[in-house]
Amino acid sequence: MNTPVPVGPVPTPESGVEPGRGRVRFVLARLRLMWRSFRNGWGIFMDSRIGMLSLFTIIAFALMAAAHPILMAFVWDPATYDPVTGYSFDQVEQPAPPSWKHPLGTDPLGRDVLSQLLYSTRSEFVLGITAALVTVGIATFVGAVAAYYGRLLDAFFMRLADLIIALPAISLLIVLSALFHLNLFYLALIIGVLGGFGGTAIILKSQALSIKVKPFIEAARVAGGGHFHIIFVHIIPHLLPLALLYMMFTVTSAIFAEAVLSFLGLLDIRMSWGIMIHTANTGGYLLGGTRYWWLIVPAGASITLLCSAFYLAGRALDEVVNPRLRRRND
């Protein structure tokens, strides 16, 4: 399609190093480079005590999520321990306080609370991470495109973001869940879309704007790079660290939104931390004060812990991503 220009010798497989080995070395060198920059970032993250604490908390919850199917398969009898359909017949009274058989007691419907807690952890992770991926995917793309093309496209996306921010998200979700049967996946999608076109897009766009005016963008244009090349090779990689950070914050808001909606009984979900509290509430056990603590504390503490762990891990990542925030200790 383009006319050939004399550029050195014609490319041949024989030129330079042996064909195969040269490329392998090339790929290896790149991998080494990525490993090095990962190690640098990891070093900074490790310096943050709160960051490490959050990371351990997240890992602990992940292990809990992984433990549930194993326990169900090898230790717990499904008839008794299934988080939704199980029933503990050997209890005189439901809900029963913690015992050897039920470390966190049973709920008003005679189901094991620990099993519910562990089972829900997985849903929370799936929900949070799906919502975060959707948010960040949309926001990165929208931010880069709005900043790069400017004008009408920019005006459109920014007004859309203003609109979404102006709408109170939780009340919007309440309306939506009243109209449709929201399951976990749709909830994640809606939270992701709201975040992606909303505040996160504005933040990533302002970052993209500061990249767009850098002279290396002009250099890429002179090299012959098209819009696609510049957006994906030169702008988006500079947005990814910030995007990762906002993924963390989105996980927090997704888990929180799920808890609120489940508590109000608006979600079509088998089991979740929010539903556990909802069940206690509809039975009137929340009014009983601390007497039925095992119905509320495990789920409530889990929501608080996991949300703050993701949030604080994000703050620690912020230090890795934003050199300005780094304490100089060298």
Binding site: N2, V7, P11, S15, G16, V17, R23, F26, A223, G225
Partner: peptide
């Protein structure tokens, strides 16, 4: 190598050599 790669000139080996 950016001018070579965005213009689709040669393969990786060729660009490394250039």
């Amino acid at each position: 190598s950016e001018p070579l790669s965005v213009q689709g000139m040669g393969d990786v080996q060729y660009r490394v050599d250039r």
